[in-house]
């Protein structure tokens, strides 16, 4: 097994073990949506109108709370040194870390979304655009989030700092993602354009985030 694959397998395993972050994020997502549904009350048509944006914002917030766990444990237990000195480039290791985060967080959020969509009275035809946009967008959320996690790896209790760092960087993904989900639900031709811009954002993050994360990690080694 290559170092790249080993990092993914280890991080995903850890996320599902006791104390791992996988279920935390998806529980937070569910909680946000349930509370939102309770707050809106019995107005079903209002609920189905705002369901896609609410689910998108909920998924984004749930991703945000899990970002601190990407690099801080590795920095604290000394694993980061081993990751840096292994034969593979740190850029690829950073990509592996971000992908592992997506598998253990993003994918679970995408899987939970249809269930929570029922709660918000989302129409059946709107389900596919929502899931597709989340599937593409959460990759970008994990990649950008991993970079913020790398920047704050040496700081204890950096949750709020990480949220402040990622919020502006998440804005395009939220706008295009939520836009695609809503446009798709309404049968709007803007759906395709939004989806492509969303994919472009995720791809851009896939190139920049590993490079930036590697630089941030090296800076955090002392």
């Amino acid at each position: 097994m290559s170092a790249f694959a080993a990092v993914i397998v280890r991080d995903v395993t850890l996320a599902f073990r006791a104390g791992g972050g996988a279920l935390q994020a998806v529980s937070f997502f569910a909680l946000t949506i349930v509370l939102f549904a309770l707050a809106v009350g019995p107005d079903l048509s209002l609920m189905s109108d705002i369901a896609s944006p609410v689910l998108w914002a909920g998924a984004l917030l749930a991703t945000m709370i899990s970002l601190e766990q990407i690099y801080r444990p590795d920095r604290e237990d000394g694993s980061l040194d081993a990751l840096v000195e292994c034969g593979d480039s740190l850029v690829f290791i950073a990509l592996a870390k971000a992908l592992a985060h997506w598998i253990s967080t993003g994918l679970l959020l995408v899987a939970a979304a249809p269930l929570l969509a029922l709660l918000l009275n989302l129409e059946g035809s709107a389900l596919a655009p929502l899931v597709i946009s989340l599937l593409i967008g959460t990759v970008g959320l994990s990649l950008i989030g991993a970079f913020a996690g790398a920047l704050a790896a040496a700081l204890p209790r950096a949750g709020v700092l990480i949220a402040v760092i990622v919020s502006p960087l998440y804005a395009p993904i939220l706008i295009f993602g939520s836009g695609a989900a809503s446009a798709g639900a309404a049968g709007d031709p803007q759906y395709g354009a939004n989806l492509m811009l969303l994919a472009a954002s995720s791809l851009f993050a896939a190139i920049i985030s590993p490079l930036a994360s590697a630089a941030a990690l090296r800076f955090n080694l002392d």
């Binding site: 290559s2 280890r10 850890l14 006791a18 292994c86």
Partner: peptide, 18 residues
């Protein structure tokens, strides 16, 4: 990693250091 067994930790390093 505290949540991984001794063997899982060793195996991870084996892959990491090729």
């Amino acid at each position: 990693k505290a949540a991984l067994s001794v063997d899982e930790n060793l195996q991870f390093w084996t892959a990491l250091y090729d």
